[in-house]
């Protein structure tokens, strides 16, 4: 297999980041666990948000993890893809709204 920057096996080793800095890793994982627990939003709702964000930040580990998690939590394929479209719409919108800045600059410079 050709070496790549991303190795699916590395996802299972996420917890090992504590080897180099335990205190911060412990704090992060404790925080992470609490974020995804049942709260004012359900653990199920949070799973779908995580799936959308995983696509927005384009993290292959997160996409793997939250595709499984969303299936386990009973989301349909259609619901999961709609969540990805939400991420895409926000990303696309974020690019396009800067078009106003471009227009402003062009208009400022133009006769």
């Amino acid at each position: 297999m050709n070496p790549t920057y991303y190795n699916p096996e590395d996802l299972k080793k996420f917890g090992s980041i504590g080897e180099f800095q335990k205190q911060l890793a412990d704090k992060f994982f404790s925080y992470y666990g609490e974020v995804f627990a049942e709260g004012e939003l359900s653990a199920r709702e949070k799973s779908l948000i995580a799936l959308a964000v995983a696509h927005a930040v384009q993290c292959p580990y997160c996409i793997d993890a939250y595709s499984v998690d969303a299936m386990e939590k009973g989301y349909t394929e259609g619901q999961m893809m709609e969540a990805v479209h939400v991420a895409a719409a926000i990303r696309g919108g974020a690019t396009l709204v800067h078009g106003v800045q471009m227009m402003n600059k062009v208009k400022d410079l133009s006769m």
Partner: peptide
């Protein structure tokens, strides 16, 4: 039962859905 190679979520949450 899951329709694939994954585990079930909590019984209560699935029951509600």
């Amino acid at each position: 039962n899951p329709s694939g190679a994954f585990l079930p979520a909590t019984q209560h949450s699935l029951e509600q859905q």
